[in-house]
Amino acid sequence: MAGDTLTVKGYIQHHLTNLTYGKLPAGYERVDYETGEQIVLTEDTWTFAHGGEEAAAMGFNAVHVDSLAWSFGLGLVFCWLFRRVAVKASSGVPAGMVNFFEIIVEFVDQNVKDIFHGRNPLVAPMALTVFVWVFLMNLMDLVPVDVVPELMLLLGVPYQKIVPSTDPNITLGMAVGVFFLMLYYNIKVKGFGFVKELTLTPFKHPVFIPLNLFMEVVGFLAKPFSLGLRLFGNMYAGEMIFILIAALFSGGIGWMLAAGLMQIGWAIFHILVITLQAFIFMVLTIVYLSQAHEDH
């Protein structure tokens, strides 16, 4: 927070706090941000949280404004970039950036063809969206950690996390979306077969139905969670290391030089990580939907 004395702990915490807008319950005691007075809320109040404690007190009725705004903005960037290519695309000789985007499209299309053997016009566009969108969200990790938050502080915005994929809400939101699609297609394609799959595998005997059901449901539910948490974990850890290295800048000229080199090294390595994580998220999405379409 702007008013705090800058400690390493405070610095890190500040970088890990989302700009949260949510409902504080009636009776909540908070410090008024401008006057510094202790006030007790008389009724439920929708407001921006000042710090992690208030954000936690808001519970489920809160929105990470920064995550959602960056996520939406990057989604728009994706749509704009590819829509431009879609408008320009023709069967003639492709030129310039069209080539680059067509390579991405072809790459995604090839992956979908390799993994997904059913006929579903949704899967390939979704894979492309997931791949590019997640990549763009991860890419924000390469923006030096202090630039945007400090700019936002100057504009009076207390918190700003610019990497949406370091927010579990974002990654799990996408994973849950994929999960609903898995449920939908499992039921649509297999019908009663889906129930059979949940109850009669791996042990094909009525006696084992409860055991099978338990194992299969756990396995089924684990898919979206592993999908979302894998991306979140990787990006959160990467972001954390950037922040920790950035914290070293306070340790004098020697540390500054070392930290600068480390930032560059980690950033270069991170180019691989962000691409790989976007790719993994896409491939798993295709795999899960492919499993939903495969009737045994």
């Binding site: 949260t20 949510g22 954000a55 936690a56 808001m58 519970g59 489920f60 009725n61 809160a62 929105v63 990470h64 995550s67 959602l68 996520s71 939406f72 989604g75 994706f78 749509c79 590819f82 829509r83 290519v85 879609a86 499209v105 016009p121 949704l122 390939a124 566009p125 979704m126 492309l128 969206t129 969108w133 949406p164 927010d167 579990p168 809400n169 974002i170 799990l172 939101g173 996408m174 849950v176 979306g177």
Partner: peptide, 25 residues
Amino acid sequence: NINLTLIGQMIFFALFVMFCMRFVW
């Protein structure tokens, strides 16, 4: 914290996928 952000992201996800499915792919 898990909160409404998750729902918001799901809506954005659906929007962008539909856009891509109709106008891009």
